[in-house]
Structure formats: structure tokens, C-alpha cells
Simulated scan of single mutants.
Amino acid sequence: MKVILIILGIIGILILIKSCIPKNENKFNDNSRPKLPAEKNEIVNDRIVIINGANYNDIKKALNQFCNTYNKENYQAIIRLTAISQNEFVLTFPYGINFTTFCFLINYLYYPNEIFYNANIKGWTTTKSNDEFISPDNSNKYVMLYIPSDDKKYDNVFLTTEDNKGYKLGFAVGGLKTLNVPKEYFVKNKYNVEDVKNKASEEIQ
């Protein structure tokens, strides 16, 4: 009987400890933000993401989760969501977004929290020499960013330059890794920023 009471006591302590640990998903739902400036200045850039095969509500939810995580102290991502059709969407960044956050966003869209879709997601941008992960070999090049279907690491994004040089960008460890063959060959984006600039859209921040 004494042994059973000890076991029950240990279980009770473990349950209490677990209940005191903040749940990781809270960061996805906390929509607190710093105050936005009265006027926002648009920044010309060519960064764009095209999504096929998901629905508007799921994409918007994923973008809100991403912004809940990255816009706590300052606005790292204000995303313009444009619907081309019921299952084709374009993301643009009228106020700019740094390359690292852009990579994180593409990764997050593949692996959103508690959202399940099977979408084709790709991003395009021109790299700069001072971008994180970028080397002299792939700077000042137009590139495609994506996650290949066989990815099991969940903390990286893949990059293919317009001349079909492939790289793996590891967030936690590894940094930039050159691939002998790109995971996917470069595909020209179907739309560019100017194509969707004047279409009806919603800003996610």
C-alpha cells in the first residue's frame, strides 16, 4: 500500500511539473505587437512566394502564427497575401523582409503548427552579398527557395540559383552546404511583384 501511495505521489508531482511548463504553441497564438508607425514606407524588393494547393484560411492562419512568433518586439514581416484563385496565392513584402526571415517563412509554411495541407510552396528573390547563408558563389543571383519532398530535418531550406547551382541552408547547424546536384532545378516564377501589386490583397502583420 505504501509503495502505491509513493507511486501515486510521484505521478502527481510529474503532472504538476508538466502543467507549469509553458506550452510551446502559446507563441503561435500570442498576437501582441509593438505599435506600428503612423506611416509605413514601402521598400522596393523582388521577394515573392507562390503557393498552390492550400486554401486561403489555412494560409492566413499559418501567416498569423508566423507573425505572432516573429513580430513580438519589432515587425520583421508584414506580408501581403493575394489570392489569384481558390487554391493559388501570392505573398509579397511591401515593407521589405530580410533574407533570413524570408527563409524562415518558407520553412514555416511547409511545417505550420497544427495546420495540415499538401501545398506546393516556392519563394524567389535576388540574393545580396551581406545576406546570411550567402557566399560569393551565390550572391547577386536570382534564386528559388523551397523544401524538397524528402526533407526530414525540418530546420532548413534549399536554394537553387538561376544557373542551377544547389545549396542547403541549415538553420540550427551546418549553415550553407553546396550540393553536387540541386534538390530541384530552377523554375521561373509564374508571377512577379509588379503583376500582383494592384490586385485585392490582405496584409498580415
Rank of each mutant, 00 (worst) to 15 (best):
V3I: 15
V3T: 15
L5I: 11
G9T: 06
L14Q: 08
I17L: 15
I17F: 14
I21G: 08
N26W: 11
K27C: 07
D30F: 07
N31W: 09
R33K: 12
K35G: 09
P37L: 01
A38R: 11
E42T: 12
E42Y: 09
E42S: 13
R47Y: 12
V49L: 08
I51M: 11
N55M: 04
Y56P: 05
K60I: 01
K61G: 09
L63I: 06
N68H: 05
N71K: 06
K72Q: 15
K72V: 11
E73F: 14
Y75T: 08
Y75H: 13
I78S: 11
I78G: 07
I79L: 01
T82W: 03
T82F: 03
I84D: 01
I84W: 03
S85M: 06
Q86T: 14
T92P: 03
F93E: 01
P94W: 01
Y95I: 03
Y95E: 08
N98H: 11
N98T: 07
T101F: 12
I106S: 00
P112R: 05
E114R: 10
I115W: 06
N118C: 09
N118Y: 12
A119Y: 05
I121A: 01
K122L: 07
W124E: 00
W124D: 03
T125N: 10
T126G: 01
T127K: 03
K128Y: 10
S129Y: 12
D131K: 00
D131E: 05
I134Q: 03
I134P: 01
S135Y: 07
S135I: 15
D137H: 08
D137T: 10
D137F: 09
K141V: 00
V143L: 00
L145N: 00
S149W: 07
K152L: 13
Y154T: 13
N156W: 04
V157F: 00
V157L: 01
F158V: 01
F158Y: 15
F158R: 02
T160F: 01
T161S: 00
E162C: 04
E162G: 00
N164I: 02
N164Y: 02
K165N: 12
G166L: 02
K168I: 09
G170K: 09
G170M: 10
V173H: 14
V173R: 14
L176H: 10
P182T: 03
K183S: 13
K188R: 11
N189V: 07
Y191I: 00
N192Y: 02
E194V: 08
D195N: 09
V196S: 03
K197G: 08
N198S: 10
E202G: 08
E203Q: 12
Q205K: 15
